[in-house]
């Protein structure tokens, strides 16, 4: 039986005024959810609320995942450290798998090194490992952000337009890798996506935001 990872009870989200109201959904292991809707309607705000970066205006969000490392987040602007190498950025994902008492200035335990290398290899950025992230193209940076999440192995991954700027081949590589990771670790993915066709191709659930409501659509 699939375990429920997150439960949103009658949640309203927004900043001053509510953008989306009355959200009642469950997210379970193996879910790949695509959020669709026009710009400015609250898709990113929904992801940020689930991630805990902002509080819901009302309602309750329950997460059945570890507070450290359980949630992965790829923001629209990726959140990479431009001055650090690709490997150092990917390593940050593995760092949250250590105990929170592991000193920040200590290098990672050796046991994680293989996972970091594997994540870079799967996404075709192993050769860029020593390059500073700031000199990479937008598409390469997206693969680095995804590799960081693979190295983290979160139970719930939130990704904000993380397939943008990728060519068709790379979309396939990234999605296959992420789907394999979701299967292997019994996790779930919620992604904001602008391209409906792509969303229907990769997701097994669709959330459409319309008129301030979240509507779940059947995926054929």
């Amino acid at each position: 039986m699939k375990q429920v990872l997150a439960h949103l009870h009658d949640v309203s989200i927004g900043y001053d005024a509510p953008l989306i109201e009355g959200i009642n959904v469950e997210i379970s292991e193996g879910d790949v959810i695509a959020i669709l809707g026009p710009s400015g309607i609250g898709k990113t705000t929904l992801l940020r609320t689930i991630s805990g970066l902002i509080r819901p205006l009302s309602g309750e969000i329950e997460l059945a995942i570890p507070s450290r490392g359980g949630l992965g987040y790829i923001p629209q602007r990726l959140g990479l450290v431009g001055n650090l190498s690709v490997r150092a950025n990917v390593s940050m994902g593995a760092r949250v798998r250590t105990s929170r008492w592991w000193p920040a200035v200590f290098p990672l335990p050796k046991v994680f090194e293989e996972d970091i290398t594997k994540a870079m290899r799967h996404l075709g950025i192993e050769e860029l490992a020593a390059q500073p992230v700031r000199i990479l193209s937008g598409g390469q940076q997206r693969r680095v952000a995804t590799a960081r999440t693979l190295a983290q192995q979160p139970k719930l991954l939130l990704a904000d337009e993380f397939l943008g700027e990728l060519d068709d081949d790379n979309v396939e590589v990234v999605m296959n890798t992420v789907r394999a990771a979701i299967r292997d670790h019994n996790s779930a993915l919620i992604m904001v996506e602008h391209h409906e066709e792509l969303a229907r191709e990769v997701a097994n659930r669709i959330w459409r935001i319309k008129d301030g409501k979240l509507i779940e659509e059947m995926v054929v």
């Binding site: 790829i74 450290v81 760092r95």
Partner: peptide, 19 residues
């Protein structure tokens, strides 16, 4: 963005500052 990603991931303050 990098600070928010770190916070969402559950990095400690020391890790966020140092890394």
């Amino acid at each position: 963005a990098p600070l928010e990603a770190a916070k969402a991931m559950g990095m400690t303050r020391a890790e966020t500052a140092w890394h």
